[in-house]
Nucleic acid binder design. Structure first.
Lengths: 205, 205
DNA sequence: TTTATATTGTGAATAATATCACATAATAAA
DNA sequence: TTTATTATGTGATATTATTCACAATATAAA
């Protein structure tokens, strides 16, 4: 199972949810390919990998397809995460509407200063000392690291100690830890630099 | 020139800047490989692609290497971007310290409601009507789209009309436009879903 | 000096990913 | 019914990215 097809699976899901909301019943690999800007063979190859089958000449029934994809993505129950660090990014995440709609819930937040406000009365802020215990007690599997880079590795070590299973990291450093714990990095500076580099390269062509 | 090596170039830059700050003078491809969690051949292949050469048995002089990389990344002058949309994410970006340190400047912000405050007196907010004119007058090349998904394509069209050269898009939709304008998507829901999927896959192994 | 050693730079091999080509089957038309 | 058409599903192929293998060479040691 490769990473890229999982990412696409999540995109198929979005497209399918929109189509469903619009009242569509069937969809062809060609439609999904258009929506994602890829080839239809890629769509079918992806489905093939995940043992998703459609109907020869009939395409796919959106409801069935969506259900299968949601199961593969583990979207059968609420996906709870903890947020570590209530700075600019942490606060933005706390107010971001996109998560709730997709069944992702920020269960609670942690900060060295637990007096920081989340601005949401349904999400409590706990001091860092309670991070490990909370994760273990509540069986949280995924954490978001939104602390300054200097603190990120320390937080990651705590999370590992607590038995976390996956991490989304906003700090611009590579977190070191066991191979089998997936860490996804979001680095905004890097993305913008990357963009400028492409823009400059285009100019010289 | 492939996208992945440019991303790595940006990471090499960070590592080199840290090493320089620590007083180091030389670096080996092996050191950089360790820092990024890749192989040293990859590092050398990347450099080779960008015509960066070192010294047989002597590694690379950090100052020289850094200078070359900064030039390739177009970091010889301030990289100005405009921000479109002052919601949660937009506001987080406005307050994010990471940009300034890396020579990236949010030049100005745009929103349908120009009364929105940036919280920074050095960054003005303009109404959406002025977006196209401003970009043209100020020769802005890169824009950040941080508006709701429903408005994203419309904003992108305006940016294209203004002659934008690259876009960082936070809206969870695929923006349609000419092939040659690079669009980088940051989709937080997708990243978290992806993570959960990996976590679940690991459990079944 | 000569020899040993460490590191770069790169063509070739391998691995990962995407696309093509086409057999297969379901539906619609004749 | 039979034939034509339209999608799927997948083995084969092409493309892209990474790693290997090793020649070239600079430095240090003998």
């Amino acid at each position: 199972m490769n990473r890229r097809s999982i990412i696409r699976l999540s995109k198929y899901k979005n497209t399918l949810q929109r189509l469903k909301a619009m009242g569509f019943v069937k969809v062809f690999s060609d439609n999904l390919a258009d929506a994602l800007g890829i080839r239809s063979t890629q769509v079918r190859k992806d489905f093939s990998q995940f043992k998703i089958t459609g109907n020869k000449r009939g395409g796919y029934i959106i409801d069935e397809l969506l259900e299968k994809i949601l199961r593969i993505l583990g979207k059968t129950s609420i996906q709870r995460v903890v947020l570590v660090g209530i700075g600019n990014i942490g606060r933005a995440l706390l107010h971001y509407k996109g998560f709730e709609n997709e069944g992702i819930e920020i269960d609670s937040a942690f900060d060295i200063n637990p007096d920081k406000q989340t601005g949401r009365d349904d999400i409590s802020v706990y001091p860092m000392e309670q991070l490990v215990g909370y994760i273990q007690k509540e069986k949280i599997e995924v954490a978001v690291i939104a602390v300054p880079d200097i603190a990120a590795q320390r937080v990651f070590d705590l999370l590992l100690q607590a038995g976390i299973k996956g991490v989304l990291n906003f700090a611009p450093i590579r977190l070191r830890g066991p191979e089998q714990i997936p860490v996804t990095n979001v680095n905004l500076v890097l993305e913008i630099e990357n963009l400028f580099c492409f823009v400059n390269a285009k100019k010289e062509e």
